[in-house]
Design a protein around this nucleic acid. Sequence first.
DNA 1: CTGAAAGCGCTTACAG
DNA 2: CTGAAAGCGCTTACAG
Lengths: 334, 334
Amino acid sequence: MITIKDVARLAGVSHTTVSLALRGSASITDETKKKVMKAAKQLNYHPNHLAKALVNGKTNVIGVVANFFSSNFEMEVLKGIEQSIRSMENDYMINLFATLEKNDQVLEDICLGRRADGVILLSISPSPEIIKLYNDNNCPMIVIDERAEGAIEITMDNYHGAYMATEHLINAGRRNLALVIGDSNREELGLSQNERKQGFLQAIKDHGLTFNPKNTFFIEDYYFEEGQVVYKRMQRYGSNIDGVFCAAGDIVASGIMLEAKMEHVNIPRDLSIIGYDDVPSSSLIDPPLTSIRQPLFQIGKNGYARMVRFLEGKEEYKPNKLVYEPQLIVRSSV
Amino acid sequence: MITIKDVARLAGVSHTTVSLALRGSASITDETKKKVMKAAKQLNYHPNHLAKALVNGKTNVIGVVANFFSSNFEMEVLKGIEQSIRSMENDYMINLFATLEKNDQVLEDICLGRRADGVILLSISPSPEIIKLYNDNNCPMIVIDERAEGAIEITMDNYHGAYMATEHLINAGRRNLALVIGDSNREELGLSQNERKQGFLQAIKDHGLTFNPKNTFFIEDYYFEEGQVVYKRMQRYGSNIDGVFCAAGDIVASGIMLEAKMEHVNIPRDLSIIGYDDVPSSSLIDPPLTSIRQPLFQIGKNGYARMVRFLEGKEEYKPNKLVYEPQLIVRSSV
DNA sequence: CTGAAAGCGCTTACAG
DNA sequence: CTGAAAGCGCTTACAG
């Protein structure tokens, strides 16, 4: 491995000079600089990132932390981040951390183990202690899609999204709605599922209707196949359902729809359904699925750009909240 | 920031002892170990990853390098990697690097800058110099979906996949086939697109048919909308097309299909179409799209596990090649 | 304008 | 069984 000392030897200067020259210090002659550059190039010198980071106290990496990668949510946010990276031309690398449930532990390690200069959390809720830790260590934290008092909190208005969706069903003449939502038994409902539930219930109330709690159906893993199962459960346990708000998202909604079609239920004539997320396939399936779109790409793009500004000292880091608005995408399933 | 010295002070021993105790060295009394552990816990000590990596010459990170994240290909492979991580219980972190075209530069930096102990490349073709560099530095490299003489090369049999697809069209009575494929003008065709083309042509030949080169259509970015455009071009410039092999994948194929349906073309009666990749939406669209499925999940899962074995010295790293077989998924679009 | 020295937080021989 | 010393590859005051 080629180090700064090898370059120094070849250039005939001290390693201090090499270090200074390489970063264009004003106190080095142009001539020496050239010599050093030449030697560095000749030896194909690459600075050891670890050594640099250790002495600088700065890693130049931005950590992106999530429970799963590769679900539609993470994918869209990542696309936005990628776009930002391409357009910004800076030295930050992103590092993806998959937490596998031990969120706080991983976050502690990232901060205290100096694995990143700042983190972006996707649908992960940091404990107050962790937030304090990050603040104490001047490590900026942007939390997307969860609460984070004391950090930068970027959420989407799930309440409003659900309200719009439900109202859309009601305006289409649906009176006996069903709610399909992430399971609340095992662990607490995530922020967004919870808010969607509230928005749904409020919309029903505001329109003078009532909701039959029997028409709530739970999902655990957000798989397509769970949607198929849910449809069967609706048949057995539901009562007169004529409209479904699938807060659990479009993939599950697609499963419900497929199963309904298999049973020769005409959508939307016999049953209306609306999803959430507006995944790419939603416009392709039959009938095209009405859904709620969230600006995930934008959020990823802006979030990353903002993190870079924090780290470069171009924007002062201080806790605040930002809420993005969702959008109703009307297609033919309602 | 709490360092090993702070722990030493609190425990009343030297920092050397702390270092040894923390990693369970046999030459430290159980009693001292306990004292140290207690002090470490009390101070919430976390080792500085950078310092460790610098002295150990080992980062414990595995780099995953790709041009884009968040396309279906990367997503599936990542899912496999994730699954592997969950089931393995080891200390490796994965680090995603987006190359943005300057592949060799990034790869050089990862290796020489000590950013990872080993890399997994997704659809990225390393130059012979880079492969040599990695070998010289004992840095294992697994290359998925591209050629890599001198490294571990994991590919899928695209030739065979394309052959099967084409044969399937021919067996359905199609005689005037069109080929939709990634653009070869700007840069060289990727490995897989190229092989698919060969398989396609060979199948036609073997069945005593001829291919009209006018029926080749190019794609640049693999977007859905490009498929729609391609369909229009087929109408204008193609000659009597009755079957389409979309080597550019299912997303593009879906675009072609949608546009055809808009023009009231009945699929598969008037036009057969087969895609590649078997993306999740392919079974949901109307009609369900016949496609070729590649075992991406498996590849990611096995690739990661293998990399860990290399890094832990449980398997000797030596260049070889592995080819996975694709599978024809028959649905209703042919 | 350039170099010798100290230090970032850790580990690893080597004495004692 | 424990500690003082040297070193990983870099940077940053501080002399000269």
